[in-house]
């Protein structure tokens, strides 16, 4: 069971969340121009990183907001939690300054300022 720090609600059990797969996949700018190969890449191909992975989660039982997370797919350690639309933080380089570090770090109070939106890539 992962303990995930929702940027809005603080640390909650994994069962309150749903997984959204790889983060930062942009909808093609000109869908009509894509080749079959490019469509396949957009629809079916996702990174399957062994190591630090940027992924989306939604706090479905709580605030119903999406957010991004950097997580190690081997140790399952959570390295950073950041808002939709924000670029992927460096890890480990930026470790100390990453927003919402590891479970427990983000409290509702401190995260009230974290921008959240369901837009972005």
């Amino acid at each position: 069971m992962l303990l995930i720090s929702c940027p809005n609600c603080g640390p909650r059990d994994e069962t309150e969340f749903h997984y959204g797969g790889q983060a930062h996949i942009a909808y093609p700018e000109n869908p009509n121009d894509l080749s079959d190969r490019e469509w396949a890449e957009y629809l079916f191909y996702r990174e399957n990183t062994k190591g630090t992975f940027a992924e989306r989660w939604v706090h479905s039982t709580g605030c119903r907001q999406w957010f991004n997370m950097l997580r190690d797919t081997v140790s399952y350690d959570i390295h950073a939690i950041y808002a939709m639309g924000q670029p992927r933080p460096d890890y480990p380089a930026d470790q100390a300054s990453a927003p919402g570090l590891a479970p427990g770090a983000a409290t509702p109070a401190s995260s009230a300022t974290t921008p959240t939106s369901s837009e972005g890539v």
Binding site: N8, C9, G10, G62, C63, R64, Q65, P108, A109, A112, T116
Partner: peptide, 22 residues
């Protein structure tokens, strides 16, 4: 309410925070 956990209200009508805009 402005944040997770908050309940606002006057008398018998209360509002519970469900999300940043819900």
């Amino acid at each position: 309410p402005a944040a997770c956990g908050e309940v606002t209200g006057a008398g018998s009508i209360n509002s519970l925070w469900l999300g940043p805009a819900e």
